[in-house]
Design a protein around this nucleic acid. Structure first.
Lengths: 109, 109
DNA sequence: TTGACATGAAACCAATAAGTTTCCTATTAA
DNA sequence: TTAATAGGAAACTTATTGGTTTCATGTCAA
């Protein structure tokens, strides 16, 4: 079940990588532009970008000597699918509790 | 922004921990019951359960000498909030593309 | 009340991950 | 065509993580 979700979750588990996502949410960017936002070497950011790519979260386009990175449309789907599947079980009891409370409110004191 | 989402994403990034979640989706369980489903020592599972707890994904109830674990209602909220925020940017271009295609289909050949 | 059960805790080990520095290659522009 | 720019790759270091084994503690049941 959900065989290849590991790369997605792994990619999202690092704060620097989520920071990169926040940047790319503002539009595509080259490696150097991205790295300029962090107190970290360029190679380190390059590694993070590779992890994000392997997680299917971003796509990369080589343009001359530059590499343009952007959020990959649909890249979140494995994660949202996983969430959608399990959130049912998660909030089942919460829903039951809500219903019980509402039913109780309708009754006499 | 989203200051304490790290423990949630970190907890979800391990396949064994997601396996534990899958088990707990079937109902609450003691440590021993959970560990019985994995080819792994009990202390290892206990550590994973601690990480899941710190991520707010499960809750634990001590009952005599047993400890009952279950999915914590609302535990996924930080993650779903994060997803909801960024999925907008993610699929923005996808949506634009869709609209462009649809508009194009409506035009003359 | 004693033995078995359920778990916690500590010490330790090995693999992985995140970061660095250094050097190399390819492209662009003067 | 040469210098500057953009990035890739490799080697290395250190911290974290995921796992183990061993021992201690508290609770239940015979």
């Amino acid at each position: 079940m959900s065989l290849s979700i590991q790369p997605s979750f792994h990619a999202l588990a690092d704060p620097t990588r989520r920071g990169i996502i926040a940047i790319l949410a503002g539009g595509e960017a080259r490696l150097g532009e991205i790295a300029g936002n962090f107190d970290m070497s360029r190679p380190a950011i390059a590694k993070h970008l590779r992890v994000l790519k392997e997680g299917g979260l971003i796509e990369v386009e080589t343009r001359g000597r530059e590499r343009i990175h952007r959020l990959r449309p649909g890249g979140l789907k494995p994660v949202t699918d996983w969430i959608a599947h399990y959130s049912r079980f998660w909030d089942e009891k919460l829903d039951q509790l809500k219903q019980a409370v509402e039913a109780d409110e309708g009754e006499a004191p």
